[in-house]
Amino acid sequence: MLSMTNLSKVFRTELVETHALRDFSLHVDEGEFVSVTGPSGSGKTTFLNIAGLLETYTSGDYTLDGQNVFTLNDRQRSRLRNEKIGFIFQSFNLIPDLNLYDNVDVPLRYRGMTAGDRHQRICDSLEQVGLANRMKHLPAQLSGGQQQRVAIARALAGDPRFLLADEPTGNLDSQMAASVMGLLQDINQQGTTIVMVTHDPELARQTQRNVYVKDGRVCDEAAPVQLATVNE
């Protein structure tokens, strides 16, 4: 599904060269749920941005769903993001002026679907996260957990092959976090590949495999021990 080989990313300013990623290699198979952990400044976010086609890289190879992304132009990258990737952000990134329905609608609009098609998908995905009855509400009227559920619905609505989650429970209390995690696992079980960046080892343990990143490199790759407390 996702394959990074010897990827590196260098930020250059006039004075310094910062290697955000060096010789970064990672392979994620179709249907996997992988967590990426590491201390802050380790390169987690850079990895996430590159994996999500939000940023370009300096050298190496990155193939997403069989497609080498290095040569893609901005329009093609946008399209790939829109069709193949679903994003879940730490701070939800809902558009405050739009109600839930319109928020979920955003990526579908960019795909150019018909109105009927969009409506169906929006309803289905909001149904899936249990918020179908609050479509007309504004994000500010919801709790943090509910907001993140909307964000997940938005990510799911486009029916992506691949879900990228960035600290999805970072702004939530433990109860809400657990329910969001449960939701992600449901989604994974339905066949969607998930890569989740987090600093929380507890959360990482709930995934099939954990990748530990330090200083821009993958240091340790191991399947975390499945804990009995996992919410099914």
Binding site: L54, S78, R79, R81, Y110, R154
Partner: peptide
């Protein structure tokens, strides 16, 4: 800006 970045992440092209 944040909202625009999100839209871009969700697949909006520059012309969009």
């Amino acid at each position: 800006r944040k909202q625009i970045g999100t839209r871009r992440a969700l697949g909006a092209t520059k012309p969009a």
